[in-house]
């Protein structure tokens, strides 16, 4: 009965979440598009060539955002995993599971773009230094999460096992982040750090931040859509989906903060 007074649980109800995503995702796509266009423009037409690396450094404007998103999405996945393990909120499990494929993709892209940046800069696509190795581990953690989830027939058990893996693996995120300080790495140190600010030209920083914003918005749009789709897949036609057309969902009934669990 107390649940009625907690508005943040409102969107853990599948039907309300569906309704929210329908309204949010088009806006987030628009934000992603605007930021991507602006970021690419600044990155390719405003930011000057690097005095040492020439133009290959422009890979940074996509490499760093994808790497950050990989770490961020993993941390977020772990947060949802904790919420799911502690309070058994189904929506948290749906969110965690929806983050994994996009997190894996972002991590894979950061490794790919990093290799293509490393080749002209270091003379090699890959080295087993701490930053690169821990990022590869991050990719395997994402893939392991998805594989473990899918491998266990009982969804509830699979969800819990995968959530536990997400939780244990989160220790890797600070390891990646601080690896360039803790170990001697071929990978360069932090260009932007909480203590030292940014060590690059303002136009480069602008392109980097715009790219990060675009990546963030893309990830938000895609993972919210995936969570929505996952909800549809878990439902049968007798539930809340009856009241929802393929394009839209009705607003929730007035005056009801949180439906009490019974289907309409």
């Amino acid at each position: 009965m107390n649940r009625r007074r907690i508005p943040w649980l409102y969107f853990t109800v599948p039907r309300n979440f569906y309704w929210l995503v329908q309204r949010l995702v088009p806006l987030i796509w628009a934000v992603a598009a605007v930021l991507a266009v602006a970021g690419l423009y600044v990155g390719f037409f405003v930011a000057p060539p690097d005095y040492q690396q020439g133009n290959s450094y422009r890979i940074m404007f996509i490499h760093v955002p994808t790497a950050w998103m990989g770490m961020f999405l993993y941390a977020l996945m772990a947060v949802y995993a904790v919420i799911f393990l502690a309070w058994r909120i189904k929506m948290a499990d749906v969110m965690a599971r929806s983050l994994a494929p996009t997190g894996a993709l972002m991590t894979a892209l950061s490794l790919w773009t990093g290799a293509l940046w490393g080749a002209p800069t270091w003379g090699t696509y890959w080295v087993w230094d701490a930053r690169l190795t821990s990022t590869l581990l991050l990719l395997f953690l994402f893939l392991g999460y998805m594989a473990l989830y899918a491998a266990i027939d009982d969804r509830e058990k699979g969800a819990r096992a995968a959530a536990l893996l997400a939780l244990i693996g989160v220790i890797n995120v600070p390891v990646i982040y601080f690896s360039v300080e803790w170990w001697h790495t071929l990978h360069q140190g932090m260009s932007i750090s909480p203590s030292g600010g940014a060590s690059m030209a303002p136009s480069m920083l602008a392109a980097l931040l715009l790219g990060t914003g675009a990546c963030w918005a893309y990830c938000a749009a895609v993972t919210l859509r995936r969570a929505q789709t996952e909800l549809l897949e878990r439902e049968d036609s007798t539930g809340w989906t009856r009241t929802v057309s393929t394009d839209d969902a009705p607003p929730a009934p007035r005056g009801v903060a949180v439906p009490t669990g019974r289907r309409n």
Partner: peptide, 12 residues
């Protein structure tokens, strides 16, 4: 891209 075309365009 100043000779770095395969790397830059391969990334993007």
């Amino acid at each position: 891209m100043g000779g770095h075309a395969p790397y830059v365009w391969g990334s993007y």
